[in-house]
Design a protein around this nucleic acid. Sequence first.
DNA 1: TGTACATCAGTGAACGCGCGTTCACTGATGTAC
DNA 2: TGTACATCAGTGAACGCGCGTTCACTGATGTAC
Lengths: 206, 206
Amino acid sequence: MSKRGYHHGNLREALIDATLELIAEKGPFGFTLAEAAKLAGVSAAAPYRHFAGREEVIEAVALQGYELFADLLDYAWDDGKPSPLRALESVGRAYLAFARKHPGHYIAMFESGVSPGASPELSLAAERARQVLIRAAEALSARLPPGRRPPPSMFAAHIWALSHGIVELFARGKPGARAPFTADELLESGVGIYLRGLGLIGTDES
Amino acid sequence: MSKRGYHHGNLREALIDATLELIAEKGPFGFTLAEAAKLAGVSAAAPYRHFAGREEVIEAVALQGYELFADLLDYAWDDGKPSPLRALESVGRAYLAFARKHPGHYIAMFESGVSPGASPELSLAAERARQVLIRAAEALSARLPPGRRPPPSMFAAHIWALSHGIVELFARGKPGARAPFTADELLESGVGIYLRGLGLIGTDES
DNA sequence: TGTACATCAGTGAACGCGCGTTCACTGATGTAC
DNA sequence: TGTACATCAGTGAACGCGCGTTCACTGATGTAC
């Protein structure tokens, strides 16, 4: 950021940022390491001081993405305050906001072919994000009679899958391309119906 | 298939098949046109007699995929027989089966960066698939009191998003990688809860 | 049925290009004393 | 504070490779008469 002489000073981060930008613009396979290096203002050989290759840069982007994602979801959940229902709504909005505001991260995480098991840190970070959803599911389940509680990990998987599906199918490109609703409308209404199905919302509550 | 002399005879289809195989194995960007040509048993220059380039081959694969997808969903829906509820279950299973059995097609359709609007035929085929879901949603909605019916296109979007999210997050790789449930379990339970939320299944029905 | 010709659908060589990667190098920075 | 030295983080040239694409070509097929 500061001194730009012979030594970049912060090339690792700069390469991640450049990659982020290129992924968002051209997809996870639409550019080369050399291109990312040039965008970071450095020769094509420089990245090899910090990464073993292209793949490792994308993994670093995905890792950063999972960390940020977990933080944002956790912040939105806010320990289930003011109420688990409200907090879950907030998590849903945070999910879509993350996908919208950080497309490079989102794509690296879910569409780049990088498996969450690629490295220990990566699976740890991915698991941390998943745990936020599971905690939310547990808090909500606790309000159901014991016999009618779905396993929290299933509950969480449903919410995650719905959110992800909406991002992939309906949040890209022009609004209304594949359905005449915004992603936010779809997620809120979908989760609402789902929660009613679980008995967490009464028939006449909104 | 039959005579393999100087003229291949059916190169267009053979290239699509080769591409299908390569996509399933290495992802939509993990191979080159030359590779597909070789796999089809033909020189690297031959594809240009049939396609403008790599992108056009992938589009052809996606088109074929959407046609097949629409056919399979339509067949599974079977005009809502024996009952709309049963028929919808059948559509869900068909959706997952398609993704599982035709990964090359599925990936070309949803993960290759090809937009459904890329060509008129493509958007037509994609729309046909979507209409199957919408028809199902309409038939099911018809059983609800008019005041409580969601717009069919929203209903359809929810089901589609949930299905797609499950495929992307939970149907790849080893079972149990991201959640301790199979894709089929997740979809069936998720749709079940959703339909209950709509009032289409009573509290004690399975 | 045979022949001449047009068209079609391939080949194989060639090209320019840019990528990934390596390498010896060198300027900048940090540290011991 | 100054100097010598080690280490770090870059450069730029070089390479081999294979891709995408074009081109003149040619073998196979279809058709007119």
